[in-house]
Design a protein around this nucleic acid. Structure first.
Lengths: 341, 341
DNA sequence: GGTTAGCACTCAACCATTGAGAGTGCTAAC
DNA sequence: GTTAGCACTCTCAATGGTTGAGTGCTAACC
């Protein structure tokens, strides 16, 4: 048996309906829909075929059909068409984004809020990845006698801060001098190169090697990997609106995942494509067995990029989600790249 | 009718039992308990009295009694005794706190995590309040041609950062010079004084008044009020373990509050006491009608302090919660005041 | 041959009924 | 003042019948 145009049409109608209602859809419902001019009986035959092909499933004999993960996959890959956002939607997104800030944490927090607010799903936004980026400036600001704030500025204009220990007796001007020297040596370096450079620097000035060790460690841990990129979640409670989560225990384990950085981070690791959609079982996490995750990439400057994701039920409105993220990607880029309004 | 010792004893037994089980407690249950040597019938008479006094309520005629908010109030004020934490508990708290950092955000994140983990309730921790504090240092670090990171260090050794706009053409050394000047003028000032000082400074150097306006605004918004203190929540999903939240809609609206900074912040505004307990209706929020909130203050240095809170069901284990927070308060102080291990 | 009306069949959801169990309040005896 | 006994109340869980939505199959129709 093969899929033909009518089967596609009917499958699409079923998915559309199920996305809206979350109720198994019967043959009459589809028959009544505009655009499908067949009687319930005909639809039933086609549905039976679609079930055999693995696109539909029946919760029980006398219920309607619900789309399978395979059906959503087909929908996302072939049936879905991009939609345009309404004025009202883009407006609401803009309202969330305060154009006055270029602070990474704030921008991604606002982005997560906006995404979850507009889509009514749960949003996760990660800060820009520090890989493939070069250092532009390193500066230390004294805090107490024995500590200083290490500020690292990257070529994309992003800032990383961290409090480090410094030996007692190093004055502000001395720290500034050291900072200038560090900036000179490290500017233009990738994190890896910086690490090597730093080793040289350390041996150059024996007396401050203790301080240098601290700086080294801090730069290491700041620029290394993604341990340090901020990760914010918005709209945690949104999914509880959907009947899929009317079971508290299910809701709880879902929320528990959102609280664990370790479990959450992998979700954002899509392919390197602009958009990635993972549906239900494809996610490979029991807590998300009837969730889908859509991830997208945003860019800051030339070489820096970050990831955002939307988590919703498998029957989520993929078309709208992709459109919203598309819009949001541009908005974040604008904000973080410092584009003026 | 008056409360006597026996009534206190029985009330305490009922509360203890209800805290454990969340099930209305009957006369037989109390009678069987060690320490109470009366028959169910006697207990029933006392219970009837306690109900009349407003300490107990009956969900329906043939159920046991549950403690009222008034009973918990009495319990917290008079009946509760501090408990000692077990080795295992203090150990678990310590494990959460990474002594390697003095970064405010990180410390309070860890604290929230630890609190929720040990108590199994939901924890909220706010960063140290910037009021009553004096400025120790102000420094700007160039980021792009038109922006810089403004770093403000307070006398308590806490750091605030913010990206601000600067006029084009101001070089790094010039920024450093300006920073030194600003530090000189502002160090020792309270935020209010700083604002006045800044006005003078601005008029002094006409050419850079644009920059100064930016700094002024930033300092204003950074040190003003509590808009900017970080606020982190831990253990959001914890409350869903309790039968009080087996209703998804209730759980959802609870979680929604946790997502709104505006609604959450007032909860932490207890009196200025070391500990504050607000029970159910005392909170005055429908979403929290059967929650209690325990807040506590922690101190950093002399004049700086912050707040943390635990949100649990009204039948929460107050004694343990207070003990845990007591311990945590000291731990946070140590970390943020830079006390070495 | 594809399409459709008709019909018997299935099954979840809903409702009312019932019995068991927990707990109470009251009374009378200790 | 305390307690045993007992009738009473009310929830909870199980049971069974009814309803309605939806299916699959068959036979008629175009």
């Amino acid at each position: 048996m093969k899929m033909d145009d009518r089967k596609f049409l009917i499958l699409q109608a079923i998915i559309d309906d199920y996305i809206m209602t979350a109720v198994p859809v019967g043959s009459r419902t589809i028959s009544r829909k505009s655009g499908v001019g067949f009687s319930p009986a005909t639809i039933r035959n086609e549905m039976s075929d679609l079930e055999e092909l693995g696109y539909l499933a029946q919760p029980h004999t006398s219920a309607g059909r619900i789309p399978s993960a395979k059906a959503y996959r087909l929908y996302v890959d072939r049936l879905m068409k991009m939609v345009d956002l309404s004025e009202e939607e883009t407006g609401r997104i803009r309202d969330h984004l305060n154009r006055r800030t270029a602070q990474v944490e704030e921008v991604i927090r606002q982005a997560a809020q906006a995404l979850s607010d507009v889509t009514h799903y749960t949003a996760v936004v990660a800060g820009p990845q520090m890989t493939g980026v070069s250092i532009k400036r390193v500066q230390m600001v004294p805090v107490t006698d024995t500590s200083a704030l290490l500020v690292i500025v990257t070529s994309a204009g992003l800032v990383k801060e961290r409090v480090i220990q410094v030996p007692e007796g190093v004055g502000p001007d001395q720290l500034y001098g050291l900072s200038k020297m560090l900036t000179e040596r490290l500017s233009g370096c990738s994190p890896q190169e910086a690490r090597e450079q730093l080793a040289n620097v350390t041996s150059d000035l024996g007396e401050h090697s203790g301080l240098m060790a601290g700086v080294l460690g801090a730069i290491d841990s700041q620029l290394d990997g993604d341990q340090n990129v901020p990760l914010v979640v918005g709209g945690r409670s949104n999914l509880l609106h959907y009947p899929e989560y009317s079971d508290v225990e299910k809701a709880r384990s879902f929320l528990a995942v959102l609280e664990s950085r370790e479990k959450l981070a992998p979700l954002l690791k899509g392919g390197n494509l602009e958009f990635t959609v993972r549906i239900g079982p494809e996610i490979n996490m029991p807590e998300f067995s009837d969730c889908s995750v859509v991830t997208a990439t945003y860019h800051v400057g030339e070489n820096t990029s970050g990831t955002m994701g939307i988590i919703g039920p498998t029957r989520m409105d993929y078309a709208r989600v992709v459109s919203v993220m598309n819009y949001m990607g541009r908005a974040i880029s604008d904000l973080l790249s410092g584009v003026k309004e």
